[in-house]
């Protein structure tokens, strides 16, 4: 979509050849959509696969552990006893692929963890289990 718009702009610039557009820019104007296309390819084809290889999660009885990212990575540990809310959401796209997102929130913005792309039934089961577990171990949670 964006690539098409960029290509149109580039084509327009070449064909119109306004005098105020410097010549060196006109010569290489096709680089702009080209670079973007390369970026988009990486983003849509390489990144998700890479992410799939990196992303890990584990929910034990006491801690929710996630690893996310692809180029840069993040590891997160959230103790179950400090969890305030567990959100289980499924957008229309996620419903088409039968996956779901699990979001765990604590009293701090820095202690909130999101697990995307879980199997829907699995996410449902985990969120229920977590809810029960939170009830068992919950303290003041701050």
């Amino acid at each position: 979509m964006v690539a098409t718009v960029l290509s149109l702009i580039a084509w327009g610039m070449v064909s119109a050849a306004w005098p105020w557009v410097p010549g060196w820019l006109l010569e290489h104007v096709w680089w702009i959509p080209g670079v973007y296309l390369g970026y988009a390819l990486v983003k849509t084809i390489v990144a998700p696969r890479w992410r799939y290889r990196v992303h890990r999660w584990e929910v034990t009885s006491d801690v929710v552990y996630t690893r996310t990212g692809w180029l840069s990575r993040a590891w997160q540990l959230v103790p179950v006893s400090r969890i305030q809310t567990v959100d289980h959401t499924q957008s229309w796209l996620e419903r088409m692929f039968n996956v779901a997102t699990l979001r765990v929130q604590t009293a701090s913005y820095a202690g909130s963890s999101t697990i995307e792309g879980l199997d829907a039934a699995e996410a449902q089961r985990i969120s229920e289990e977590l809810a029960v577990r939170i009830g068992e171990v919950r303290d003041d949670a701050t």
Partner: peptide
Amino acid sequence: IGWTWSQSLFQR
């Protein structure tokens, strides 16, 4: 109430 490590490409 939680730990987060984040590491960019350069940091790695």
